[in-house]
Nucleic acid binder design. Sequence first.
DNA 1: TGACACCGACTACAACTGTAATCATATTGG
DNA 2: CCAATATGATTACAGTTGTAGTCGGTGTCA
Lengths: 124, 124
Amino acid sequence: MTNDPNISDAEWEVMNVLWESSPRTASEVADQLCERMQWHPKTVKTMLARLVKKGAIRFRAEGNRYSYRPAVSREKFVRVESRSFLDRVFGGQATPMLVHFVENGDLSDDDLASLREILERSGK
Amino acid sequence: MTNDPNISDAEWEVMNVLWESSPRTASEVADQLCERMQWHPKTVKTMLARLVKKGAIRFRAEGNRYSYRPAVSREKFVRVESRSFLDRVFGGQATPMLVHFVENGDLSDDDLASLREILERSGK
DNA sequence: TGACACCGACTACAACTGTAATCATATTGG
DNA sequence: CCAATATGATTACAGTTGTAGTCGGTGTCA
């Protein structure tokens, strides 16, 4: 039903917490994010409310408070975001993007090694 | 001097036109974008004005109209955007990101081939 | 039992975005 | 020369985002 909702940078952080482990209450999520980012607990509440409205997460009343969980898979969001990044920044062309990442020192030696391995396997 | 300005998705499209070839007058840019996207010429003007204010492009009066050119290199923007994408979507980890692209059919056979080649070279 | 801490609901508010419209002026085809 | 047109400048306006604050109810520790 839900056509993939658009979520903002800050909202991604919240989703990441919930994808990591859920369900979680608002304050559990807030604890994580007040530490990782320097967010005010109220800010986290706002994010949760907005994500609910967007249909990206769901909640259930658990006693007198709510527990939240993702309503959409991380994979789906990742796919959409990756596509849009590739299109916007590299005109949809994967090779230049790969060159960029490889040449920009974003890849450690380990990264390079595992990447070779993946290519072997997926190769032919 | 200029701390890298933040530009929005739509503004990227404008920058792409100017990085492709510049200087260009407002209407030249508009022509491109009215075609590629379905933008109103006025919308393009607004974008140009905003990008000037942000310091991402510069203009010079050419007779009675302006000609625009980038003020910041594409490479710089690409680096910033790529970093932020990697952090936000893949927690800063390049390998999972590449795995995603490899496994998601975003890479053509040619892309895969050049990726192997890039890895050859960069490896040792 | 009373002050306080917490919860979820609702409100605030400025900056940024997408998407133009209006205005004053300069240029131009007729 | 003058009306139509194109230009840059300014303004509009709603939706999104980041970043909270307020309000009314409830559970809690002293």
